[in-house]
Amino acid sequence: MMAYMNPGPHYSVNALALSGPSVDLMHQAVPYPSAPRKQRRERTTFTRSQLEELEALFAKTQYPDVYAREEVALKINLPESRVQVWFKNRRAKCRQQRQQQKQQQQPPGGQAKARPAKRKAGTSPRPSTDVCPDPLGISDSYSPPLPGPSGSPTTAVATVSIWSPASESPLPEAQRAGLVASGPSLTSAPYAMTYAPASAFCSSPSAYGSPSSYFSGLDPYLSPMVPQLGGPALSPLSGPSVGPSLAQSPTSLSGQSYGAYSPVDSLEFKDPTGTWKFTYNPMDPLDYKDQSAWKFQIL
Rank of each mutant, 00 (worst) to 15 (best):
A3D: 00
A3E: 00
P7L: 15
P7C: 13
G8M: 10
G8Q: 02
Y11G: 00
V13G: 01
V13T: 02
L16Q: 00
A17Y: 14
L18P: 00
S19H: 05
S19Y: 12
G20Y: 12
S22H: 12
V23C: 03
V23R: 10
V23N: 02
M26Q: 01
M26A: 04
S34R: 09
P36R: 10
R37Y: 09
R41K: 08
R41M: 11
E42P: 02
T44A: 12
T45K: 01
T45G: 15
E55C: 09
E55K: 10
T61H: 06
D65K: 15
A68L: 05
R69Q: 14
E70D: 03
E70P: 13
V72T: 10
A73P: 12
L78P: 14
E80M: 08
R82Q: 14
R82I: 06
V83K: 14
V83C: 14
Q84P: 11
Q84S: 06
V85A: 13
W86K: 14
R91C: 14
A92T: 14
K93C: 15
C94N: 06
Q97D: 10
Q97E: 09
Q99D: 06
Q99L: 07
Q103S: 06
Q104M: 07
A114Y: 08
R115G: 02
A117T: 04
K118H: 03
R119E: 01
G122I: 12
G122W: 07
S128I: 08
T129P: 04
D130R: 05
V131Q: 05
I138F: 04
P145H: 06
L146E: 03
P149Q: 03
P149N: 06
S150C: 04
S152V: 02
T154S: 07
T155Y: 15
A156H: 03
V157R: 04
S161I: 13
S161A: 10
S161G: 05
P165A: 04
A166R: 10
Q175E: 03
Q175S: 10
Q175T: 10
Q175N: 05
G178P: 06
S182L: 15
S182Y: 14
T187S: 07
S188Y: 13
A189Q: 04
T194Q: 02
A198W: 14
A200G: 05
A200M: 12
A200H: 09
F201V: 02
P205F: 12
A207L: 11
Y214V: 02
L218M: 02
P220I: 15
Y221K: 05
S223F: 13
V226T: 04
L229M: 04
G231L: 15
P232Y: 15
S235N: 02
L237I: 05
P240S: 04
V242R: 10
S245G: 08
A247L: 10
Q248F: 15
S249F: 12
P250I: 14
P250Q: 08
T251D: 02
S252W: 14
S254E: 02
G255E: 00
Q256W: 15
S257L: 12
A260T: 03
A260H: 07
A260E: 02
A260D: 05
S266C: 05
F269N: 00
T273H: 06
T275N: 00
K277R: 10
K277A: 00
L286M: 05
Y288V: 05
K289F: 11
S292V: 10
W294R: 00
F296M: 00
Q297N: 00
